[in-house]
Amino acid sequence: MADSLILAIETSTGCGSVALTRGTLQQGRVLAEYTHRPDLSHSRRLLGSVREIMTASRLGWDQLDAVAVSLGPGSFTGLRIGMAAAKGIAMAAGLPLFGVTSLDGLACQCPPAGCQLCVLLDARKEQVYGAFYDAAAPGGNPQRRGEILGCTPEELSRLISEPTLMVGPGLEVYQESFAANPLITLVSPALIQPRAAMIGFLGAELLAAGTESTPAGLAPLYVRASEAEINLAKKKAADAASR
């Protein structure tokens, strides 16, 4: 199944992205990808885009191996629409369905930088969703370290004690909050945006790993701001333990 054909949907931010991928991030390719950026309702373009890439790629539904969808965190309404579409397609085509964390998809877009990675999305109310990743080993994907955090950019910045490459659409709004921290290297948010192709590659890995598909109960990831303190506490404890 290393060469599996995946239809992927990513709607965690203000844009909708759909892709057809073959194989995994390390040994795969993007067959088609359509990303719609304007602030249009997700629903208005999503299914039309799915149909377009299927038609353009001259592929039938029966040729797909699985459907992959972003679990978020992100815009809850956007995620629900993407997930409703993914579930409908999976049920109609009799395909397995896999959920992938939006931040993991973003992390996969970064070339190995030899330092830790911090990925962030805007969580509104002056907060971000963030996660840390170990620098990718040669031939491997970046590995997430710990829970997804929901906190203010300042809190996130205070957690950084080693050279860090910071990426993601969260920087569109909060770039300035990190400018003063000399350990942080910022990557233009225009470069790293949610892409369905990454969700497809990571979905292919779940399929190859024999992960069970449980489409019925799949739901968007909640990272509540109220949980921020708990998650932060966990991270601090984990960091202390690893030292």
């Binding site: 815009s75 809850f76 309404t77 629900r80 509104r124 909640y222 509540r224 109220s226």
Partner: peptide, 15 residues
Amino acid sequence: GEEDVEGAGLLDYLN
């Protein structure tokens, strides 16, 4: 509570 507010998709309207 707030989980219901977000879950019902109402949060989007605050923006």
